[in-house]
């Protein structure tokens, strides 16, 4: 029982980190990122390839320590975001969303097809948890929880400090109304880029944390549902713009997910495969219900859905 709870906490923390990142990009900067999966993949696979032992089938296998894996995840996610920023960030709202979605799908295709790089559909196994060999499986879980929680806390503090700083005020200006912002076009661009890159780096960490926890990743690890959609659901439930809120949203949504997995587990096996899709159905309905009934989420600012005067 306890181990389920620890598992829940670790995964929820991982998602909490991703939620903070998306909150930075959307809640504070107004970037509608529908391609979170891209950075999960990059972060997870980079870390995995750096830390696993060598294999004849694919590159990597440097067997480096966990921390190097994480750093690699951060660096490569950041790099990808930096490169994408130039074409993608110029695009408004819906166009940006489509682009991010397409990027995410493209990366998934690359992961799936480039066997020499990622071992294709067979995935990468044996991704190490830090210290596991030294302290044994049980204690290792606790340590991992500690690491995940620590990272969550660190990113939370960074985010809180960031949005209250002058930089954070610039983010606000960009999100509220670019045209009216008194910043120069160049400043506006820089701020958007920084938010996008930092956010993506954090998402990369989240992906890497997942990889090292589960120990195995494959092209189907990060489906649109489990990467992009679920994180959006988390920040909407928690309240975009509130860091505390989105973390809570992550824990609540993941709790519902795990809880439903329990319920599914006790059902007769003929139903279990279907039950996964009942869950998907409920998640979709939940998202739309939140948007309809309480779009500011639990802790969000009312302003997010203000009556648009410009419509008239």
């Amino acid at each position: 029982m306890l181990s389920y709870f620890i598992s829940y906490l670790i995964m929820a923390s991982t998602y909490g980190i991703a939620a903070l990142a998306l909150n930075l990009q959307w809640g504070f900067t107004g970037l509608m990122n529908f391609g979170i999966g891209a950075f999960y993949f990059v972060g997870a696979y980079t870390s995995a390839l750096l830390t696993t032992s060598a294999s004849p089938d694919y590159v990597g296998g440097f067997g480096l320590p966990f921390i190097v894996g994480l750093l690699g995840a951060v660096v490569l996610s950041g790099l990808l975001a930096y490169v994408l920023a130039f074409p993608a960030l110029r695009l408004r709202g819906g166009f940006f969303a489509i682009s991010m979605l397409a990027i995410s799908e493209t990366i998934r295709l690359i992961v799936k097809n480039e066997k020499w790089l990622t071992n294709g559909v067979w995935g990468i196994r044996g991704i190490p948890q830090p210290l596991r060999n030294l302290v044994g499986a049980d204690l290792s879980e606790w340590i991992y929880l500690g690491i995940a929680a620590a990272l969550l806390f660190i990113f939370y503090r960074l985010s809180e400090v960031g949005v209250r700083s002058p930089w954070g005020r610039m983010l606000n200006a960009v999100r509220e109304d670019e045209k009216m912002a008194e910043m120069s076009g160049k400043d506006s661009w820089n701020v958007k880029m920084q938010s996008f890159v930092f956010g993506s780096m954090i998402m990369g960490v989240s992906g890497a944390l997942y990889a090292h926890y589960i120990g195995f990743i494959s092209p189907s690890s990060f489906t649109p549902l489990m990467s992009t959609f679920i994180v959006w659901l988390m920040i909407l439930l928690g309240g975009t713009g509130s860091n505390k809120g989105v973390i809570l949203g992550a824990f609540v949504v993941w709790g519902v997910w795990i809880g439903s997995e329990f319920l599914i587990g006790v059902l007769p096996s003929g139903i279990t495969s279907k039950a996964g899709f009942v869950r998907m159905l409920l998640m979709g309905i939940l998202l739309d219900a939140i948007l309809l009934i309480r779009p500011q989420g639990l802790f969000g600012r009312e302003k997010v859905i203000s009556k648009l005067g410009s419509k008239e």
């Binding site: 203000s306 009556k307 648009l308 005067g309 410009s310 008239e312």
Partner: peptide
């Protein structure tokens, strides 16, 4: 006695 506007 009309009062009207945009947004708030």
């Amino acid at each position: 006695n009309l009062s009207a506007g945009y947004g708030e």
